[in-house]
Nucleic acid binder design. Structure first.
Lengths: 176, 176
DNA sequence: ACCTGAACACCGTTCAAGT
DNA sequence: ACCTGAACACCGTTCAAGT
């Protein structure tokens, strides 16, 4: 298998697409594929070659944010008991959701159903497993349940009430 | 103000539009306005004259279902303590959501933000107020919080887990 | 009063033709 | 190997012309 060098213009095209998408999302929350291609100065075909679906493009745009969110789960577990770590992690999710609703939209694509390795689901699994071991979080709750509950964060009206509603959720997941 | 008779064709057009929309939703979950007009045998202008937005059309399609759901709240309160009534009512919502996801989609339109009299929010308010009076439901929960939490029912993956997730929500809303 | 349907604007996606 | 952009299919919405 010989090294296959990617053409320089292809590399810069891809980078520019992602950059432009990020900028468009900062100002509008919609992301028309044609608009991305035009603003990036590439043909539509090039856009689709790089990102076959809008979801793929969103995932790339928010990859760093999602990585940070996922990485914070084990960090919190190292410093706190599991229930506290879970509570703090939920606040992290809310903070991300407030700034960029896209983080949530990106993870709602349905990778859930596909069952492929959704890193956010894995982070939740770790937190839940730790809480189960501690006896502080309910044993009959799965990551997919939590993801369903967190879906409310993607609604625009959620902004004000997010932390309060997260508190309700957390209370429901605790062992009484 | 003299009686203004509506033309007979206008009446039947409106009825046929709603009927056709109901049928399309039964088989596809999408509802293209052009498709509704075509299937109903009317021009697009007629469709828009009757229903200025898709939301208005959906509201009309599901009006009977929503009415039933709303009416069940006081009925349940008459027969059960407030916490039980609330729990049973949540199950009613889940049952509706399973059969026709549109009921949920219709109520998510954003009447919430507008603050106009959303009958579902009123039904929830009655249940919460009764639970507060009884001391069995948390006092710091509003109908808008519950609506946000119920939003998960509109997701396709919710079907299997709906009752379980509702149980988690209910637990979070109970006074411990 | 009410209706029709052509027309406009917009979007996603594909693919023949180019370099 | 990669790119361009015309082209196709689709949708929402409006409005001039009809009855």
């Amino acid at each position: 298998m010989p090294e296959r060098r990617t053409r320089a213009d292809a590399v810069s095209n891809r980078a520019r697409i992602v950059q432009v998408a990020r900028e468009l999302l900062a100002s509008s929350s919609e992301l028309p594929m044609n608009a991305v291609a035009k603003a990036a100065g590439v043909g539509q075909g090039t856009l689709y070659r790089n990102f076959a679906t809008r979801e793929a493009l969103l995932a790339e745009v928010y990859r760093a944010d999602v990585d940070r969110l996922v990485a914070s789960a084990p960090e919190l577990l190292a410093e706190h008991d599991a229930a506290t770590a879970f509570r703090l992690w939920l606040d992290n999710v809310a903070d991300y959701a407030r700034v960029k609703r896209g983080v949530l939209a990106a993870l709602e694509g349905g990778e859930l159903a596909a069952g492929h390795h959704d890193p956010i689901a894995e982070a939740i699994d770790r937190l839940l497993a730790a809480g189960r071991a501690e006896g502080t979080l309910r044993a009959d709750v799965g990551a997919s349940d939590v993801l369903l509950l967190l879906g409310f964060l993607s609604r625009p009206e959620a902004a004000d009430r997010a932390h309060h509603v997260l508190d309700l959720i957390f209370t429901g997941l605790r062992v009484r």
